[in-house]
Amino acid sequence: MQSIPMTVRGEKLLRDELNHLKSVVRPKIIADIADAREHGDLKENAEYHAAREQQGFCEGRIQEIEAKLSTAQVIDVTKMTNNGKVIFGSTVSIVNVDTDAEVTYRIVGDDEANIKENLISVNSPIARGLIGKEVDDMVTIQTPNGAVEYEITEVEYL
């Protein structure tokens, strides 16, 4: 089984979600099912069927999280020596050579990726173009609008 790279933050978020599902959501669904059963005929009981469907979603998500955590390779970049190289978990500032627009991304696992927070998946085209490069390197990233050239201005292991 292939390990899934994950930041310390990403692992904590998944563990928190798993704990919430097991300690809050699952008991509520069980109570909803029991409550709906008391309403009689299960064939035409919409509340019962809705609660059973929610139970299926909840149990599926619990299994998915447990599987990810069991294969997670947690990488803590704060414990590594920053040699200026872009690696999984690092925070990278890049400047568009043509427009001088600067943007900072953190390279994270698929589950954590959120472009609104500048968290990009390690599997994204931008991250794949940056990984292994160093401060002051020029990189060309293929975007939907064509190739864009960037200069790496800063690499942080936060």
Rank of each mutant, 00 (worst) to 15 (best):
A72I: 08
Q73K: 14
S90P: 01
D98G: 01
T91H: 10
S70P: 08
D100R: 12
N96V: 11
L69P: 09
D76P: 05
D76F: 07
D100M: 12
T71K: 15
V92M: 08
G84T: 09
L69E: 11
T71C: 11
T78W: 07
V92Q: 06
A72S: 10
K85Q: 13
I87N: 13
T81M: 10
T91F: 08
S93T: 15
G89Y: 01
D76N: 15
K79L: 15
M80H: 10
V97Y: 03
V86F: 10
N82F: 03
D100L: 14
T71W: 09
I94D: 03
D76W: 06
I87Y: 07
T81G: 09
K79W: 04
L69T: 09
V74D: 08
V86K: 07
V92D: 08
I75H: 00
F88L: 06
Q73Y: 05
T91N: 08
D76Q: 07
N83P: 01
N83T: 14
V97D: 09
D98E: 15
V86H: 05
T99R: 13
K79Y: 05
V86C: 11
I94N: 01
A72E: 03
S93V: 07
T99Y: 08
I94F: 04
N96R: 05
V97N: 12
D100P: 07
N83S: 12
K85N: 03
K68Q: 13
D100F: 09
T78N: 11
S90A: 15
T81W: 04
N96Q: 06
S93L: 10
D76G: 06
S93A: 14
Q73P: 00
V77W: 02
G84D: 08
V95T: 14
T99H: 12
K85P: 00
S90H: 04
T78L: 10
M80N: 11
F88S: 03
T91D: 11
D100N: 15
N83V: 12
N96F: 05
D100W: 07
K79T: 14
S93E: 13
I94W: 02
N83Y: 04
T81H: 10
V77D: 05
T71N: 13
K85D: 01
V74C: 11
T99P: 00
N82H: 05
G89S: 05
N96S: 07
V77Q: 02
D98Y: 08
F88V: 06
V77Y: 02
Q73G: 04
V86P: 00
S70V: 04
D98T: 13
I75V: 14
D76V: 11
L69V: 08
T81A: 12
T99K: 13
